[in-house]
């Protein structure tokens, strides 16, 4: 399941890359890519907007290195833990930023990394729980210098 979605994402990456080269207006298609990515994560589930925190600066001087911390209110036990956390950009050339995989051995559902933001936009995060529920949070970031130089 996870591998299938990942394979799909890699395929989507190739398509978006090609269209950016050949069609300047390809950016307008970004929204559809985000919707498909989110639907792929939710898989028919309705996300709850409680219990998940996305901590990110509201203004990022450098879009190439935007720090973010994601925290989930979870006991991280065998019966009740976070299994995955997905980060989605709503206005990057490719929506997928990365996916964390956690286990009960994590002990604490908090992760930090740095992401690329091509432009000022909303960043979405989704946490999948062992019981099948999914949580959603979002935050806006204003980017001074875009992060898509490579």
């Amino acid at each position: 399941m996870q591998m299938d979605r990942r394979t799909l994402m890699k395929g989507a990456t190739a398509v978006v890359t090609l269209s950016l080269v050949t069609i300047p207006a390809a950016r307008a298609e970004t929204g559809a890519g985000v919707d498909a990515s989110v639907e792929g994560i939710l898989n028919g589930r309705t996300p709850s907007e409680t219990g998940l925190t996305l901590d990110m600066p509201s203004v990022a001087d450098n879009g190439a290195q935007v720090p973010l911390t994601i925290t989930v209110d979870s006991p991280m036990t065998d019966d009740d833990h976070v299994t995955a956390i997905h980060i989605i950009a709503t206005d990057n050339p490719v929506p997928e930023i990365g996916t964390f995989h956690l286990t009960p051995r994590s002990g604490k559902a908090e992760v930090f990394t740095r992401i690329r933001a091509a432009d000022s936009q909303q960043i979405l995060v989704f946490a999948e729980l062992s019981g099948g529920d999914v949580l959603q949070a979002a935050a806006e970031v204003i980017v001074s210098i875009g992060g898509c130089t490579t």
């Binding site: 290195q65 990057n92 997928e96 956690l102 992760v111 992401i115 933001a117 992060g147």
Partner: peptide, 14 residues
């Protein structure tokens, strides 16, 4: 995926 920054860094727990 593409939105992961250069020189990837992580903080997590065990």
């Amino acid at each position: 995926y593409n939105g992961s920054a250069e020189n990837p860094t992580f903080t997590f727990f065990a």
